[in-house]
């Protein structure tokens, strides 16, 4: 049994007051997520990620298509007992403290008082909320609300969690903590389905990803398979580099582009055809020192653009992406 399964899931929103037309936010999404997977649901803003998650939580109803979680139709209360959900930019009750909120939610699962106390305090520790837990939530920053949101999503030890942009609003430290938390959930056997518009979040975590753009599934599979990410070349940063050495390397085509960073430091763009280790060795022998080497890869945005371009060529331009569907 799959953890999550959608079949041609489609959502139209009516837009316009006088002459309502259907806006296609999600167009025939078919997806399977196996149990125990960490699944990244990627796409640029407005791609339809939040819409998909809201359909899975039955906060909105599909125009057509269907969805199942743990083999049961979405919205089933017995499924809700076994799942958790972090909404995008979560918001709760102004006048409750973090602790009270979690107690309230825990009570909805029917846990007894002692069990509740233990769960709540463990969870708040786990998401890194310390003494602030007694503070009313209206005094919380966005990042702290995000942490509370994650805590409430896993209060019932869910088998499947849905995180909508779990890293948003967090600083780099916070992002790392959440990444670690997701891996811990995975180690406990929990299926994690999360949306993000940031590729690096997915790279560090996912077994598989799906990429959506303009409401359509653009690709699904392992990240390394999908994205032609080996591609574009290297960015080499060197210090103490001589102008003359740089010029000759550029002239011989070993460097596409050089950007001066100041103090004889340069960021060099090296084409894929040149082996960066050899080039670096040569520069070092000329008295320069290596600062960093990084692969230059297609960004998610570039990938979407390429994909959307392909989709539009397949279907004829008029039918692309955001074009409103004819009204039903």
């Amino acid at each position: 049994m799959d953890a999550i399964r959608t079949e041609a899931l489609t959502k139209h929103y009516p837009v316009g007051f006088w002459r309502p037309r259907a806006y296609v936010a999600l167009d025939g999404l078919t997806l399977d997520v196996g149990q125990g997977e960490v699944f990244g649901f990627l796409g640029p803003n407005g791609a339809g990620k939040t819409t998909t998650l809201k359909l899975l939580m039955q906060l909105t109803f599909p125009t057509s298509g269907r969805a199942e979680i743990l083999g049961r139709p979405v919205g089933d209360v017995s499924v809700k007992r076994r799942t958790g959900y972090l909404p995008e930019n979560p918001y709760f009750y102004d006048y409750l403290s973090a602790e009270e909120l979690l107690h309230y939610f825990a009570s909805l699962f029917g846990y007894g008082a002692a069990d509740r106390r233990r769960r709540v305090s463990d969870l708040l520790d786990e998401v890194g909320i310390g003494a602030e837990r007694r503070l009313q939530l209206r005094k919380f920053s966005k990042g702290m609300l995000q942490r509370v949101g994650i805590a409430q999503a896993i209060i019932n030890d869910p088998e499947v969690v849905f995180f909508d942009e779990p890293m948003s609003g967090l600083d780099p430290m916070g992002r790392r903590e959440i990444r670690e938390l997701i891996l811990r959930l995975r180690d406990r056997g929990c299926t994690v389905f999360f949306s993000s518009h940031v590729l690096s979040d997915a790279e560090a975590l996912c077994s598989r990803v799906a990429i959506v753009a303009s409401g359509r599934l653009a690709a699904t599979g392992e990240l390394s398979e999908i994205l032609a990410f080996k591609a574009l070349g290297w960015e080499v940063v060197m210090g103490g580099l001589d102008d003359a050495v740089l010029e000759s390397a550029t002239a011989s085509g070993h460097i596409d582009r050089a950007t001066a960073l100041g103090g004889r430091r340069y960021a060099l763009h090296v084409p894929l055809s040149v082996a960066p280790d050899r080039l670096v060795a040569e520069f070092v022998s000329q008295g320069a020192e290596l600062v960093s080497v990084n692969p230059v890869r297609e960004t998610l945005e570039e990938f979407y653009m390429r994909k959307i371009g392909a989709v539009s060529r397949d279907r004829g331009l008029a039918d692309v992406g955001k074009a409103p569907a004819s009204s039903e």
Binding site: K54, M57, Q58, L59, V77, S78, K80, R81, T83, G84, Y85, L86, P87, N89, P90, Y91, F92, Y93, F105, L108, F109, G149, Q152, A153
Partner: peptide
């Protein structure tokens, strides 16, 4: 409006 209902309705309530 504040979307606190999103997390509430994801709990086992109808």
């Amino acid at each position: 409006e504040r979307r606190s209902i999103y997390s509430l309705l994801s709990k086992p309530i109808r």
